[in-house]
Design a protein around this nucleic acid. Structure first.
Lengths: 351, 351
DNA sequence: ATTATATTTGTGTTCGAACACACAAAATCA
DNA sequence: TGATTTTGTGTGTTCGAACACAAATATAAT
């Protein structure tokens, strides 16, 4: 029932009246054990709750475990830069567990790059993989291969159906849309009109944007109000183009009291919005360097923290739990939806 | 310069041309080493960055480390209940590092209880202590004794000057007051009047309340507005008494648009406030069971999460880092100031 | 019955650090 | 100079699990 304290293999051997070697064979079922011996050992194992000494185990195995990480390049986005920092920190923290981590980056706009890098990693057969499966079909294809190769993997940032990662780390995106709506609701008291802005990517290729928008709209559907909620798609990152489209699509709008930008690129539109619509509440994602400036200068009011730092860090932590300590880990880890304002920004930054 | 990978004591011995025993003696400076040998070994140790193998170390030392935890009883407050949960979880998580944790609770209203329990712990000379030094003078006295006994301790919840804990875990309280002000500012647009409510404790004995109030007022000082900000002290927890004092002190107030309650007891006043002042924004602390109900029913708008769960968990984690892995740990760990609303509540609850 | 072959079981070594203990070298005293 | 103490150094065992290999037993083939 209750686990006795620290029974060793030798103890078990004594209890079962066999040799330590036999117990070892049973535990790792590496065959060559008579039914009789197996029965004896099994009984004892049932009885006591054998927990191997992780220290002895790791010492012996010298498990220089090899983890691979595949994420977009840090220069692709402040979001990814932060993710890289989380990885770096995790490597430092878990270093002495004898793990060996190799980080590979891909261009987040090039599916082919993703696939080729992933295949390269596969050929090195790491003990575990941490990956951001940003491309749906490509990810499915390649990760099935990892499954077949028996290489456990943890995903973060994106969740892909039909895959069975050891753990999927992420956030409830629809809920984060609802949260944005909730904040705007608190500030605007259901007056004026609202904007949803999709930036630098096309919602068609970025399901996460859709989910956020759905959540946002859902929140207001259940409340009576007479605000207009308008979605604008700006698949560019150049200021001139952004202004252009903003003029075309929102030029006729009056009295906009809230704007919800569905990505970390929010800093690109914050000022244009604020200068057009006075006192408009601007909400976006992630405290990247540019967005931090926005928060401090007041062009951005709220940021929802997708916490790439923690997500990446947790990814390595989960792999370590799984492979170093042999723990069971939950197949999904939902990160909290942090709200960041000018006044709690620092508390999220210093670590 | 760069640390070679995994040099062992034997390797060092070979490099320095001495025996492993000598290297060991130098590393742990347990004497009996000639100046000549010491010099040789020191040179090599400078050269390479020796990092002992934690697994071998722990295996040998069989360090059944004994940690003591001293915190208020879980029934004293939802805050403390959550802290207990964090401890429990940490014990589970770190169990296999061979640590042994004993939790002692004291009545958070009785300094004498605190002192006697602490002395009892001291007499058991644990390897480390996690403590919430809620009573200023008593904590100073007893923790000095721990320092003299060479027992490292980590504090959380309260920070006491003149003490040198291995790590002080907590939040920037003044900043959390500013954050509350910031949220109210966003919602109220500097119209109407504001309340600060101190509940169930007297600010005189609870410095944390003062700091929060100071932060709150400071935020508005730097902005021009003509709101009245009134502080109310209600050193009770009985609904009747609360209503009574509220009537006396706020009976004449009109148009209150925001109320900031400085503790986790916010649920006790949320409804009275909301029913008196329609649309008043209510902000308090911590998602305790009662406050969760308040958030869900809409009587509470925002909660700032003091995160006792994480604070307590981190406490055990820090002790483990320090004593099991011999890491250097930062003397202060500031936790983020999480903002909780009805829409991100769940993301903080499920773990 | 007697090798030969397969199956099962036991023993011994290893991982790296900690520490006890034995021995060697130098220092002190007679 | 020899006896004795002090100091310095090296060797060997231990922790618990993993695994290689040898030993013992059982089974099959001749």
């Amino acid at each position: 029932m209750e686990q006795k304290k620290n029974l060793t293999i030798k103890d078990i051997a004594k209890l079962a009246n066999v040799s330590p070697g036999t117990v070892d064979r049973v535990i790792h079922n590496r065959g060559k054990v008579s039914d009789k011996a197996l029965a004896k050992v099994s009984v004892v194992l049932e009885e006591i709750q054998y927990k191997p000494n992780v220290f002895a185990q790791s010492l012996k195995k010298q498990k220089s475990l090899y983890f691979s990480v595949l994420i977009p390049r840090k220069e692709d986005d402040g979001y990814w830069r932060t993710a890289h920092e989380g990885i770096t920190r995790a490597i430092e923290d878990f270093d002495h567990f004898g793990i060996d981590v190799k980080v590979t980056s891909f261009n987040s706009k090039l599916p082919a790059d993703f696939t080729s890098k992933a295949n390269e990693i596969l050929s090195e057969s790491p003990n575990g993989l941490l990956i951001t499966p940003v491309f749906l079909q490509e990810s499915l294809d390649i990760l099935k291969k990892f499954e077949n190769a028996g290489i456990p993997y943890v995903t973060f940032n994106t969740k892909i159906p039909d895959l069975n990662p050891s753990c999927a780390i992420g956030q409830n995106l629809k809920q984060s849309g609802r949260l944005a709506a909730n904040l705007i609701d608190h500030c605007c008291k259901q007056m004026g009109n609202l904007l949803i802005i999709h930036l630098d990517e096309n919602p068609g290729n970025a399901p996460h944007m859709i989910q956020k928008e759905n959540g946002f709209r859902e929140y207001f559907q259940s409340r009576n109000h007479n605000m207009e909620i308008k979605s604008i798609v700006i698949p560019h990152r150049e200021p001139a183009l952004i202004n252009d489209i903003l003029n075309k699509q929102a030029g006729d709008l009056r009295n906009v009291t809230g704007a919800f930008v569905t990505t970390a690129k929010v800093h690109l539109v914050a000022y244009p919005i604020k200068s057009r619509f006075n006192d408009c509440v601007v909400i976006g994602y992630d405290p990247t360097a540019n967005n931090i400036d926005g928060i401090k200068s007041g062009t951005i009011d709220f940021l929802i923290n997708q916490n790439p730092y923690m997500a990446a860090y947790e990814g390595i932590a989960k792999l370590t739990d799984l492979l170093v300590f042999g723990k069971n880990i939950d197949p999904e880890k939902l990160l909290p939806l942090d709200i960041i304002t000018s006044e709690n920004l620092d508390s999220y930054l210093l670590n």
